[in-house]
Nucleic acid binder design. Sequence first.
DNA 1: CATGAATGAGAATTCATTCAT
DNA 2: CATGAATGAATTCTCATTCAT
Lengths: 195, 195, 195, 195
Amino acid sequence: MARVSDGSKKTRILDSAVVEIAQRGYNQTTVARIAKRAGVADGTIYLYFKNKEEILFSLFERAMGRFIETGRTRLNESLSASEKLKQIIELHLTLVGEDRDQAIITQVELRHSLHFMDQLSRAQVGEYLGIIGQVVVQGQETGEFRKDLDPVFAAKAIFGVLDEMATDWVLSHRNTRLESKAPSVVEFVLGGLKK
Amino acid sequence: MARVSDGSKKTRILDSAVVEIAQRGYNQTTVARIAKRAGVADGTIYLYFKNKEEILFSLFERAMGRFIETGRTRLNESLSASEKLKQIIELHLTLVGEDRDQAIITQVELRHSLHFMDQLSRAQVGEYLGIIGQVVVQGQETGEFRKDLDPVFAAKAIFGVLDEMATDWVLSHRNTRLESKAPSVVEFVLGGLKK
Amino acid sequence: MARVSDGSKKTRILDSAVVEIAQRGYNQTTVARIAKRAGVADGTIYLYFKNKEEILFSLFERAMGRFIETGRTRLNESLSASEKLKQIIELHLTLVGEDRDQAIITQVELRHSLHFMDQLSRAQVGEYLGIIGQVVVQGQETGEFRKDLDPVFAAKAIFGVLDEMATDWVLSHRNTRLESKAPSVVEFVLGGLKK
Amino acid sequence: MARVSDGSKKTRILDSAVVEIAQRGYNQTTVARIAKRAGVADGTIYLYFKNKEEILFSLFERAMGRFIETGRTRLNESLSASEKLKQIIELHLTLVGEDRDQAIITQVELRHSLHFMDQLSRAQVGEYLGIIGQVVVQGQETGEFRKDLDPVFAAKAIFGVLDEMATDWVLSHRNTRLESKAPSVVEFVLGGLKK
DNA sequence: CATGAATGAGAATTCATTCAT
DNA sequence: CATGAATGAATTCTCATTCAT
């Protein structure tokens, strides 16, 4: 999730927003600060974004785009469901763990109000959950996975585990690597607690 | 998690805050609105809370208190680890599912900024995770649960699943009962995906 | 000007007001703070003073009373005008210099607005100036002082010098004694700058 | 001290502040009123001044600047010390007497708290006193003035007389001209009371 | 006389957004 | 496309004062 600036103003604005919002939170971040860091005038922001909230939406979309894109790539390969799931888990944690500032946005700031989450969740998160769900379905069809769990539910549960690990990592100020949790997550998700 | 007002002003203010914040979000909720709903003067709020944010903290503490209290109760009983976990899961979902307004606060509004979450997470959430973790430890000691998973990790994973179900329920506008997810969660947590 | 508390609540309130107002200024001093220092309830203040500003008026009156009383005493004695003036000057500087907190009130806080000064100046300050003026008149009648200066003007000029010394002392944070300026003031007032 | 507006927004704000603060006092003057009179939006004030108090500081600086500038001009001329002093006195009273609103600010509102005066007095007032003091020194060196008075003290004493006249004029609601006091002040300062 | 919980008017300041240049 | 000065609505919090006990 490393930010590679293509130098375009829009990208510079988004990149600046990530840093500023990560530092002081969405509400404490002024449009003026973002503009300053991006090296543009305050008014310029409004040539690229309808309003301040739109910046946050764009940040979300950019982040989700990366997740979905990477997820899709893996799904196309001919792997077993378990293997695919393992890769999705590793990918998820790796992507989030690559950029702490971006992770703060994704795990915390993007969820700052019901109204806001309402708009987010359906479209893109749904797509991401769909990808996971399809892997679960595949596993059930091939007989790898138990069939008594609703794939939609399973996808959410898996996402819940990943999301908790990510949030926990963001909030802990230790210098661990988020991906190091991947094996445990795979174990837990595939095998559960029971012996 | 039904709110039982003891009629004290502080309680009335907190109850009013839950309703108002659930409706319009923390930032869009003015202290004046909370005061009005509580039937007190604006200034009275400040006799009970240092500032607006303190109201949110109190809301969190009140909610967590209920969780921990209920969790503790179950732990004291002499049940198997699986059974205890089942009860914690049911309890968690039942408590959250009892009051949608409170759930909006807990699942969304309380997480509105890193700075804020930083202050929350450690103390009380840690205690709640500790309770779950102890059950995992018990299960490992009695041989019910596999021993290769770190109990601290397992507790977070379980919490992640519960939290995702709760958030999903809050965001879905259908009229389902959150507790109806309990059996699936129990199954997933105990048995994992694998056959 | 040392404050000797007769222990009455009113006196305790005034004494507390001096300390608090000297420390943080009239506007930054809350009635609650004064009450707390005086060891009474907030409401009690209003049994003794109509409002916050009345406290300031009382402080002024108490201070002026001391000045006038002392001034009057000296005037009654049978001294030469020069000698009387010398004593008034010494007295003024000694009284002000005795209590820095009270001096802050007198030299600074009591003058915080035109409206406020308007009410002060006429009554009591006029009386104090009158005392000085009478000494000037006496000096002019006995031939000690030049006759071409209006005694009312002279009184104000003398007061101006004393007042400036007092304010200068309050603002300087050095540990000098205000009375040490008395000889110079006497010299200046009596002899002027010319050889 | 007539205010000549260069029409710049900052100047318009300062000029409006003088009128409003003179009318109702610093504390009773709202930023909104100043803005309204200046014909700008409330927020515009904060583009030019960090906060309300900064306006008062600017007012002080603008006023002192005029005093010092005028004082300096006279000092450069080759006059006797007595003559220079006479001119400083006349100038001071003329400048103050030119604009009653500004005088209210200078003589009363600018002194509303110790904290505030602390910040004012040292820098600029010190410079003004220095100018007077230099004239005293000149007089002592040329033999015009007595040598037994400390020039620093003398400067303060002279300032005290001028300041008292100014304040007295502001507080008196009669329609006298402040400069009319100049001859008496000169007489008093140069010759003292004694025959 | 005394209390102190409650009141609610009041004001400074911020900042997203606009628009003339 | 870009600028950045100007706007003005909007809101938290303070605190003098009251009054039921």
